[in-house]
C-alpha cells in the first residue's frame, strides 16, 4: 500500500512516521505536485498549513495538488485528513460542514476519550469501542446545517464522536466520512497515539486499516 503524505509549508511529520509504523509504504508529496496516480491512498497531515493564514486550510485548499486529491477520492482510494487535514478536506468540499473556533475559545491539548460510532467502516475495523486519542486544536468545533447533520446520521457518516465533547462540535462529532465512505476527516490525532510510551497506541490500528485497505 503506497500512500502519499501531502506536505504543505507547516505540515507535521508525525503522520508519515505513524503510517510507516503501521507498515504503509508512505512518502511525502509536495503540495506543488499535480498527480497522485502512482499512490493507492492519501494522507493529509496535521499541523498548520501556510501558518493557518486567513483561516485553517484556506490557502492549502487552492494548492496545485488539490485536483489530484479530489481525483484520488473519486477513484475510491482512502483519503484521510487529520486535524488540519480535516479542515482542508472541508475547505475543498470533499467533506461537508466546517470547523470553527472551539466554543470555549481555548486551544485544547489533551487526551480525549473517543467513541467509535460506526464500527462497520473500513477505517474502524478492530478498533475498540472507545479509544484514547490526543486532541490539539483551537479551531475544531464541527458545524454544519441541520440538513447536512441529518444526512451524516442517516448515512452512518459519523465515525468518531467525543465521549465528553470538548469543543462544542455538533452531535459531538470528532470525525466523519464522505457518503462513499473512503474519505475520512477527524480532529483528534491518531498519529500521536501509536505507542504506549505516548500514553496510547489506539491510533496505530487506524493506520493498519489503511495499510489493509481493500483487503478486509
Amino acid at each position: 500500500m503506497k500512500v502519499a503524505v501531502i506536505q504543505f509549508p507547516g505540515s507535521s511529520s508525525d503522520v508519515l512516521n505513524a503510517a510507516r509504523l503501521a507498515g504503509i509504504d508512505a512518502a511525502h508529496v509536495d503540495y506543488r505536485e499535480t498527480s497522485l496516480d502512482t499512490y493507492d491512498g492519501v494522507l493529509i497531515p496535521s499541523g498548520a498549513s501556510f501558518g493557518n493564514y486567513l483561516r485553517p486550510g484556506a490557502i492549502a485548499a487552492v494548492a496545485p495538488i488539490v485536483p489530484a486529491i479530489k481525483q484520488a477520492a473519486a477513484d475510491n482510494k482512502p483519503v484521510v485528513g487529520i486535524q488540519n487535514g480535516f479542515q482542508i478536506l472541508t475547505e475543498i468540499g470533499l467533506l461537508p460542514g466546517s470547523l470553527a473556533q472551539n466554543k470555549n475559545v481555548k486551544f485544547i491539548n489533551r487526551n480525549e476519550s473517543i467513541t467509535v460510532s460506526n464500527s462497520n467502516s473500513p477505517f474502524t475495523q478492530q478498533l475498540n469501542q472507545t479509544v484514547a486519542f490526543p486532541i490539539a486544536h483551537a479551531v475544531g468545533q464541527y458545524m454544519a446545517s441541520e440538513e447536512t447533520l441529518n444526512q451524516l446520521e442517516e448515512n452512518n457518516q459519523i465515525i468518531f464522536t467525543y465521549t465528553n465533547n470538548p469543543n462544542g462540535s455538533a452531535l459531538d462529532i470528532a470525525g466523519i466520512t464522505n457518503e462513499a465512505g473512503n474519505v475520512l476527516g477527524l480532529m483528534p490525532h491518531p498519529e500521536r497515539a501509536t505507542d504506549k510510551i505516548l500514553g496510547s497506541d489506539d491510533g496505530l490500528q487506524l493506520f493498519k486499516n489503511i495499510a489493509n485497505w481493500g483487503q478486509q
Binding site: I59, G97, A100
Partner: peptide, 8 residues
C-alpha cells in the same frame, strides 16, 4: 473560493 468560508 478563497477569501471566505461561505459556511461560516
Amino acid at each position: 473560493k478563497l477569501f471566505t468560508n461561505v459556511n461560516i
